[in-house]
Amino acid sequence: MELCFHDLKKNYGSKQALRGISVSLREGVYGLLGPNGAGKSTLMNILTGNLHASSGYISLDGEDVRAMGTRYQARIGYLPQQQCYYPGFTAEQFLYYIAALRGMKKPDASRRIDELLDHVGLSDVRRKRLSGFSGGMRQRLLFAQAVLADPDILVLDEPSAGLDPKQRIQLRNLVGELARDKIVLFSTHVVSDVAYIGRRFLFLSDGALIRDGSYAELTKPLAGKVWELRVPPEQLEAASCFGTLCAQSRAGEDFLLRVLSDTRPPFPAENVTPSLEDVYLDCFGG
């Protein structure tokens, strides 16, 4: 299976939200990273058919998805950033409704709904109204609806929003499991959510694809440029201004800083292995 974006552009008046995105995706998880306003949601909306591109097109296995029509729609699962649900529906009713939209048969839908509610930990509250759900519960339910019809392409926009750390890990593991035979496009601000499971990472900035590669490919250029410093409190300010500050924590009386710099900082420093977060900050600043 191959999903390709061919010079995709989107304009809102004079503003260019997407500036010619061209990329080819196969099975696996693809992290879509970038600051607010980079064009991630625009790209996802075009991919899911909720928005029309100004120019360019998307193809699936060589065929233009616009020509495919409902055959393409049937292969997409989408978890939008905004939580969409009917407050008066129960979790079970909502999933059955989604199954009806997807044209699933009742026996398949029943089996799949039971399975998914169990997977996302909502079996106990399946008959409870969604208006009584917490944000995290709704998010898990929305993930369940995205994978309900076992789509080939899964588009997840901020799927871990509202989840506690344990749930985020569970979600990450679930996505990693599903991704064996699917194309998963995973948009997030929490880099660690996608760092361990991502096959490739696409960095968007101001509508353009500025970096694209695997974990190794992206972190290799930063080898030798990521430093860990231990400084006393009185040197903290000076040390913070050196290079790009990636992280800061306390280590007893001192502060432990992680900075990005081409040159060695004039403080006791140690070279460390670059992470995806370092790449993110290298692209978009600290």
Binding site: T70, Q73, P80, Y86
Partner: peptide, 21 residues
């Protein structure tokens, strides 16, 4: 209007079921 207000319109469109609905 409710589909737009709740956001479920997005899910209907994604599922390709907007016409049927």
């Amino acid at each position: 209007a409710r589909e737009q207000e709740t956001g479920v319109l997005t899910l209907q469109k994604t599922a390709g079921a907007l016409g049927r609905a």
